[in-house]
């Protein structure tokens, strides 16, 4: 039953997805049905030989699912779809025709890792991309997250801010908000140590806040002292750390050395 139903549902899904604006609710329902159908035909985790068009259809369904999860802002679901797609991208890469949605999705996955601050995973994923290094820079979908990571690491936050409008695909913008949240927290922690006081106006520009009320709310959240009359923010400084000798640790070390020396002599 599932085998005949699959093409019908698939066509319906493609139509629902490509309609402008796409019918997200309908897509969701169709995807749930399609996934059951895929499992029944053994295409969700394909093993052995399948017909080429079946594999392509399965890949398309999962790709649409991944995009759909981003549009409904469901990141864990995107994660699941993407790991299911791995089989198609890696193991069947020699059989299947390349998909035009592959790199946008890989790029999205990279941004997701970046936002979740999983830098190690980000780099592992980047290393395992089947692209030569110079193409990393020329592929717009991949170079976007690569640049973002570089700027984040070196601290060029204004570049990240400016790049938010230059997203290579519609879906990338869904991540912008959480990315900005990440950046703001980073900047705030830098400001806390790097400045003693800051004028309110400058603090707002540094943190990319448009209105003062947003800034005040943010300052309250982080426990900054705001002096409204003078128009400054003062950062609570942890007093000079007291220099304390870690006695216990030193004693432990010394005993350890004594024991080792005993063994050597």
């Amino acid at each position: 039953m599932a085998a005949q139903q699959l093409p019908v549902l698939y066509n319906e899904l493609v139509r629902a997805f490509e309609a402008r604006p796409s019918d997200l609710q309908k897509c969701g329902k169709l995807l749930a049905q399609l996934k059951v159908a895929l499992i029944e035909t053994g295409l969700l985790f394909p093993q052995g030989d399948h017909k080429l068009e079946d594999l392509v259809a399965a890949r398309d369904i999962l790709e649409i699912g991944a995009f759909w999860s981003i549009r409904t802002k469901d990141v864990p679901s995107f994660d699941r779809y993407f790991s299911q797609l791995q089989t198609f991208y890696n193991d069947y890469s020699s059989v299947l025709p390349p998909s035009k949605r592959e790199y946008p999705l890989r790029g999205l996955n990279l941004i997701r890792l970046l936002i979740q601050n999983r830098i190690a995973d980000f780099h592992i994923t980047l290393e395992s991309l089947p692209l030569p290094a110079d193409e990393l820079a020329s592929n717009p979908y991949i170079s976007h997250p690569v640049h973002l990571e570089q700027w984040l690491m070196e601290g060029s936050y204004s570049k990240v801010w400016n790049a938010r409008e230059e997203a290579p695909a519609e879906e990338y913008k869904f991540f912008v908000d959480s990315l900005m949240g990440t950046i703001r927290n980073e900047i705030a922690s830098c400001e806390e140590t790097a400045y003693e006081t800051l004028p309110l106006k400058d603090a707002a520009t540094l943190l990319f806040f448009k209105s003062q009320s947003d800034l005040l709310a943010f300052a309250k959240e982080r426990g900054w002292q705001v002096n409204l009359t003078a128009g400054t923010v003062t950062f609570a400084h942890k007093g000079e750390e007291k220099l304390e000798i870690p006695k216990e640790k030193l004693i432990m070390n010394d005993l350890h050395y004594a024991r080792e020396l005993e063994q050597i002599v």
């Binding site: 070196e154 601290g155 060029s156 204004s158 830098c190 140590t193 790097a194 540094l206």
Partner: peptide, 8 residues
């Protein structure tokens, strides 16, 4: 920003 980050 870069100097701020370096200090932090």
């Amino acid at each position: 920003y870069i100097v701020g980050k370096a200090i932090r």
